[in-house]
């Protein structure tokens, strides 16, 4: 790890002010991705703004027809929250599939989406459910927030403060995990709200999380796994690596999508 200056933020304002004074700073949320990345010297921020003690960034609340999860809420909190389990049980399940128990005690939803790892789980849920990402400056639809591999629409001096999920009639996330890293080789989130169906895929796209619109059209007509029979996805748009070829991932997307629909 290269040397850095550590700032313990006391509030969102304090964090943003510190970022303003140190343009090359990075926020440290749960650190479960950033710290390993820094250890490998793949990231070397000269300033780290630690959000761990910012209480106003923690908590889960149902506000009418939406679920609000604040940015520093940990995967463990989402996985075990009664509010999440009753509002959208599939979202609690998804949080319980991230990493392992000790990682879930540190990792946060805000950190996950701000990093936008192409194999992260939350981005798929955000896209499928049509979540709104709330920052200290504005509100962004998930679709506009995730802009590519490890990149988001976040601007300088902007910090994710919460994620708002509208309620869906059905939601299920199916993940094929890499057995070593537990990241998604392929993860497919399927959400149905009224007549609208959304399918989001993580772990596979060469440009990060994406919506599989061809599957959405089929499932809008008939929400049944058989509607996806014969439907394939072009491997050319997918990511191939030592863990699996593009063709293998294309096949997995179909399998995971069918399983998600069947279990939704």
């Amino acid at each position: 790890m290269y040397a850095f200056t550590h700032h313990l933020a006391s509030s969102v304002d304090d964090a943003v002010k510190t970022l303003g004074a140190n343009g090359d700073a990075k926020f440290l949320a749960g650190g479960q991705t950033l710290l390993p990345t820094m250890k490998q010297r793949l990231a070397a921020p000269p300033h780290l703004i630690d959000l761990g003690k910012v209480k106003e960034l923690r908590g889960i609340e149902v506000q009418g027809d939406k679920l609000v999860i604040k940015a520093m809420t940990r995967h463990y909190d989402v996985a075990t929250s009664d509010a999440v389990k009753s509002f959208q049980p599939g979202l609690a399940e998804l949080a319980g599939l991230i990493g392992d128990p000790a990682v879930r005690h540190r990792g946060t939803i805000g950190g996950s989406i701000a990093n936008n790892d192409p194999a992260a789980d939350y981005p798929a849920a955000c896209l499928a459910l049509g979540a709104t990402i709330v920052t200290n400056k504005r509100r962004l639809e998930a679709e506009k927030f995730f802009t590519g591999l490890f990149s988001t629409a976040l601007e300088d001096n902007e910090i994710v403060t919460s994620v708002e999920f509208p309620k869906a009639d059905k939601f299920k996330y199916m993940k094929f995990r890499n057995p070593a890293s537990r990241y998604a080789m392929v993860g497919v989130a399927v959400a149905k709200k009224g007549g609208e169906v959304r399918v989001a895929v993580t772990g596979a796209g060469s440009d990060g999380v994406f919506r599989w619109t061809a599957a959405e059209e089929k499932l809008t007509q008939n929400f049944d796994k058989r509607a996806l029979e014969g439907l394939s996805i072009d491997p050319g748009t997918l990511n191939g690596d030592i863990h699996g070829s593009r063709e293998y991932r294309a096949h997995l997307i179909g399998v995971m999508a069918k399983r998600a629909v069947a279990a939704a």
């Binding site: 440290l28 390993p36 630690d50 000790a102 990682v103």
Partner: peptide, 24 residues
């Protein structure tokens, strides 16, 4: 953060001490 040999409890909860800054 894969092997768990470094697991300790912070405020009663298990975490991986190799993936947590002491200053945090």
């Amino acid at each position: 953060s894969q092997c768990g040999a470094c697991v300790v409890h912070i405020d009663g909860e298990a975490v991986k001490a190799c993936t947590t800054l002491a200053l945090s």
